[in-house]
């Protein structure tokens, strides 16, 4: 899909500039733009390093575990088919907590572990269970408390208020998660009843 979009952008640019008689415009535009690509990446390094350093401290302080304990009631509510205290529940909790803290690189291994555990409870391994669908509805719409990468990018671009978007982002991401989880609930019946990992 990205292949199609990227190719489309480049090809259409050529056609439009050729048709309007100033074909060299795209060469100039491309060369000026790519220079700032590297500049952006470099001004991004300091803030990103600072944030990742802080997050490593958070991880070692056990903040993910702390958060998972607090989230347990939510998980009980969302995943009634997963027995409490199972490895599946634990991995899902760690994944969701890491996502909440914006620790994408820590969230993925926990998430894959959760999928592996959920698959063990799956009577039909080729088809997703209810729990898997709910888990991925939450993951694909990810609630993040601090959108660190966006903040760093804003700062790198000289923003006078890089963290101003924390509030708007929280509202938007709550919308997406509520919608995805609700849609998951409503659509569940259509794909085949009772495909839960409850047995």
């Amino acid at each position: 899909m990205m292949n199609t979009i990227w190719t489309f952008l480049v090809l259409v640019s050529f056609l439009v500039s050729a048709a309007s008689g100033h074909v060299s415009a795209i060469t100039d535009a491309a060369f000026t733009s790519v220079k700032s690509a590297v500049e952006t990446a470099f001004s991004f390094i300091g803030i990103m390093a600072f944030w990742l350093g802080l997050m490593e401290v958070a991880q070692r302080a056990g903040l993910i575990d702390l958060l998972s304990r607090g989230m347990r009631p939510v998980v009980r509510l969302l995943f009634p088919s997963i027995p409490a205290g199972t490895p599946a529940e634990g991995a899902m909790l760690l994944n969701m907590s890491a996502n909440l803290l914006g620790l994408g690189s820590a969230a993925t291994p926990f998430g894959l572990k959760a999928m592996e555990e959920l698959q063990k409870l799956n009577p039909d391994p080729a088809t997703a269970t209810d729990a898997m669908c709910t888990f991925l509805a939450i993951n694909t719409s990810a609630i993040t408390l601090i959108p660190a990468t966006v903040i760093a990018l804003r700062a790198a671009n000289g923003s006078s208020n890089p963290t101003g978007i924390v509030g708007t982002t929280l509202i938007a991401t709550v919308c997406s998660t509520v919608a995805a989880v609700t849609a998951d609930r409503l659509l569940r019946g259509r794909g085949g009843h009772g495909r839960g990992g409850s047995h």
Partner: peptide
Amino acid sequence: PRHSVLAGIIGDLAG
């Protein structure tokens, strides 16, 4: 993936 794709897209649009 059953309804996962649709639920994901609905989440994106709501976001």
